[in-house]
Nucleic acid binder design. Sequence first.
DNA 1: TAAAAAATTTAGCCGCGACTAAATTTAGTT
DNA 2: AACTAAATTTAGTCGCGGCTAAATTTTTTA
Lengths: 232, 232
Amino acid sequence: MTSASVQNYLKAIYQLQENSETVTTTALAQHLDISAASATNMIKKLARLKLVRHSPYHGVELTTAGEKMALEVLRHHRLIELFLAEALDVPWELVHAEAEKIEHVISEDLEDRIANFLGDPERDPHGDPIPTKAGTVERPEYQSLLDVGAGQSAVIQRVSDQNPEHLKHFSKLGLIPDATVDVLSREPFDGPLRVRVASGREHTLDETLARAIWVTPTVEKKAYRAKSKSHV
Amino acid sequence: MTSASVQNYLKAIYQLQENSETVTTTALAQHLDISAASATNMIKKLARLKLVRHSPYHGVELTTAGEKMALEVLRHHRLIELFLAEALDVPWELVHAEAEKIEHVISEDLEDRIANFLGDPERDPHGDPIPTKAGTVERPEYQSLLDVGAGQSAVIQRVSDQNPEHLKHFSKLGLIPDATVDVLSREPFDGPLRVRVASGREHTLDETLARAIWVTPTVEKKAYRAKSKSHV
DNA sequence: TAAAAAATTTAGCCGCGACTAAATTTAGTT
DNA sequence: AACTAAATTTAGTCGCGGCTAAATTTTTTA
């Protein structure tokens, strides 16, 4: 039986690995809100368990076994998020915190029943892909809303679930997965972004907020022109 | 924040108090499957927290505060049991083990949503009363199936959820809450009991099994005669 | 009622997963 | 290349909630 702590560390390492190749002790400690010394301790334990490779002073990396465990926890987490939203109408910004605790205590059997209830879904309410039972995940390459040029449209695919306040705000603004946004303007130097949502309402998003939204740009005339230009 | 351990101790003490006035260290230790020394340790901690009164060498008793907490845990437990059975079709004999873990990690908000989803139910799938949010519980006085005389009928009100094997067996036999059973015969010296269920099938129950089933006798001619006799 | 048995508590230990303070290694200057 | 700053690890501690062995109290029995 692997403890909730071990599961949380593996999950955190997995998520940090999604952004940067190598995961540092400090990044891990910050992500989990613990001291760096505590992180080192646990890293050594995980290395003993062959769940991570530790290159002292240089970082940590999941082994195949470690990644498998991380994906199991993530599967639990995301299934539970979706289940709470669907079955109990738990609001978007609350499902993460609730799933964070429940993910460690459900049985395989209950996991299967939840997945079945939901029809083996592929995404959680924030647009994060749900790992399969077999231990595989999609790794779609989305673009940050920050990097969408003025005049372009994009479809929201994923919204980071790290900050409940942000999520609450996003849902109020209609910035949820599958929604289309038009980027109206962009201030220089990572300044705020002006967007219009499907309802026609316009909103301003600062850098931090825009960075939490991941999109695929919609293909439209402007984009085509830009593309043909670059070919000349 | 009170730990899962503390919650489990309080719940165990509450349940033991339902049967015997005073709860001994040994009974508590056996119920929780830990050593008596560990139980003493925790009892002293609970006494410091003013959740129990401890009379050394003589036993332990919940304070008002302790009972309130025990009932909160029990409410979680029983709501979760019913929810898993209703929403996910988790079989009768499995909901207890699952609820045993989840009960410690759900928020008040989730508790409320589950209760609402279920329509503020009064009983869990085994017939145990669900404590109210306010911290009150029904304490129905049922009779053990063991004490029903041959020739009498009874309606099952509650089945002890302590043993999943027994539960599985009971459900196969149709011995579930609200079912009617006719007691056909009873061997002396706590010997086995012969019963007929609504479907017409007949089954034999040994003492341990019969002790786990709680009923209210149905009022029929024999019972009336007995009653009028005692008035003479 | 005294001795034996059973129950309970005390004393001391352990693993887990946090922590701080201090030592060490690495990376970034100048 | 040497010095400094930052990152990381080591050393040592703590609370939690288990444990065993030994001491103590209560209960039972002879």
